[in-house]
Design a binder for these strands. Structure first.
Length: 455
RNA sequence: GCCGGGAUAGGGUAGUGGUUAUCCUGAGAGACUGUGGAUCUCUCGAGCUGGGUUCGAAUCCCGGUCCCGGCCCCA
């Protein structure tokens, strides 16, 4: 019996690995052109980093362990928390905004299924300390561009949490997590029944989450105007999984507590709905195709403004390939509060649907007669300064080397034997056409370098 | 954690309780020490695992592992 891979992990064979790294390079190219700098953090962190962000219930889904010094550690289940930890630890004093991106493997203890593994890769970006609408539009436009560059089309759904938080404030705190969960899970009937049961229908919540597409924003304004007529208690915070948050995030409007009966426009301003409108308008300027969708809530308390998700077609049950939004995490990790906008892309799900035009080019092959092996090795070493090239290490004869070169799908073969060494020119063979030319080494290197540069 | 379907050479597969477990592909050697993916010959290589039923199990039954699809969850 051979040793198997651990459950939920994968091997990437050469072809897969090439596709993955090619796609990653294309995506990183876009991020670099938008001025984002790559960062990288440890594969494991203190468990507390993740429970602080997502609540103690995440321990169930995390690979955690005690090390030999008795420390509680965890393989990272995501990368936003580590990156923000790094920011708080080491980058708080650099000029804002800070544009960072990351690519790395993450680990979750979950039941594997399509598009879900125990070791998976995330690529994401964070823009720290920017002006909210501008940052939000940039983040969404950026991820849109990243996906375009690898020929992935997805539906971008953009939502906004300000209004929902305000409506939730009119519901008793013990009911809030459940309501939020039902919205997130799109359980409409359950939600309706539950709202009736707790006497919270008529707050405009159902109307709000049904708003989709072009007119959604205007209609949201009118719902907010209706809200303005009623008393507006303090906005609330919802904790994940019903856990009690020990780290309540300050809401922008908490100082407004107690004020009553305001005009709708004022409420809208206070909720940042005008800011959301700016975000939307900037998205139009960027030329992004999106749908306004107030049903996107991303059930987590640290999201504070615009939130968005992207869904790909042809992926089965796990079709979300991107999630992001504006959040407040710095204070939670012991830093000065700074709002950030970011997104994470599920790299593996993207790899399930990606179609790349390019294919890996096979290296050139240097075929030699066994009597000139030592000279052939020196020539190969020179050529490798410029082009990918392999040489026989099996002790094969000339004919067998040719056969092997053909099997490798090599497009070019360089022939070296006594004739070549005597004449000072090498023979370059084009394997497709079968034509051969006698050329100096330098000329061959130059020609092939061109062929391989546009790979 | 739950439901359903699977697992046979490196990859893809056939077989139905009973001889030496099929076929394709792959890999290595040779025919062939200066010219190709062909051909021929030879070689390598397999019933996930542990129990049970049976004279006999790759085949039937049970447990486990892993894979696939879905549920739960999804930072």
């Amino acid at each position: 019996m051979t040793i198997q891979r651990p459950r939920g992990t994968r091997d990437f064979l050469p072809e897969d690995a090439w596709t993955r790294s090619t796609a990653r390079k294309i995506m990183q190219g876009v991020l670099e052109r938008w001025g984002y700098q790559e960062v990288s953090t440890p594969t494991f962190e203190h468990l507390e980093l993740f429970t602080l962000k997502s609540g103690p219930s995440v321990i169930e889904e995390i690979y955690s362990f005690k090390d030999k010094g008795g420390r509680d550690l965890a393989l990272r289940p995501e990368l936003t928390a580590p990156v923000m930890r790094m920011y708080v630890n080491e980058l708080q004093n650099v000029a804002k905004p800070l544009r960072l991106y990351y690519f790395g493997n993450c680990f979750r203890y979950e039941r594997p299924q399509r598009g879900r593994f125990r070791e998976f890769w995330q690529l994401g970006a964070e823009i720290i300390g920017g002006n909210k609408p501008d940052s939000e539009a940039e983040a969404i436009a950026l991820v849109d561009q990243v996906l375009r560059n690898i020929n992935i089309s997805g539906e971008i759904h953009v939502g906004y949490l300000g209004i929902i938080r305000t409506i939730l404030a009119r519901i008793a705190p013990e009911h809030r997590p459940q309501v939020m969960r039902m919205i997130d899970k799109k359980e409409r009937e359950n939600l309706e029944a539950y709202l009736n049961e707790i006497g919270a229908d008529g707050l405009g919540l159902r109307e709000l989450i049904n708003l989709k597409g072009k007119d959604a924003l205007d209609k949201a304004f009118s719902i907010v105007e209706d809200l303005g007529a009623a008393e507006a208690p303090a906005p609330c915070v919802v904790s994940p999984g019903g856990a009690e948050p020990s780290h309540v995030t300050a809401s922008p409007s908490s100082s407004e507590r107690g004020r009553t009966a305001r005009a709708g426009r004022e409420v809208a301003a206070e909720l940042g709905l005008d800011e959301f409108r700016q975000t939307i308008e900037l998205l139009d300027s960027y030329g992004v195709n999106y749908t306004v969708d107030f049903e996107i809530v991303r059930g987590l308390e640290y999201y504070s403004g615009t939130v968005f998700e992207i869904y790909a077609h042809g992926l089965g049950a796990q079709r979300q390939i991107c999630g992001g939004g504006t959040y407040e995490l710095c204070r939670l990790f012991g830093g000065a509060e700074t709002s950030s906008t970011g997104f994470g892309l599920g790299f593996d799900r993207i790899m399930e649907v990606i179609q790349l035009d390019a294919k890996r080019k096979a290296p050139a092959v240097l075929v030699y007669t066994p009597d000139v092996k030592k000279a052939a090795v020196r020539i190969a070493k020179d050529l490798r300064e410029r082009i990918p090239l392999v040489i026989d290490v099996m002790g094969r004869g000339f004919g067998a080397q040719m056969k092997n070169a053909a099997n490798l799908r090599a497009e070019y073969v360089i022939l070296v034997g006594k004739n070549e060494l005597d004449s000072g020119n090498l023979t370059l063979r084009d394997m497709k056409s079968g034509t051969q030319e006698s050329l100096p080494l330098e000329e061959i290197a130059k020609r092939l370098a061109e062929k391989y540069s546009c790979a």
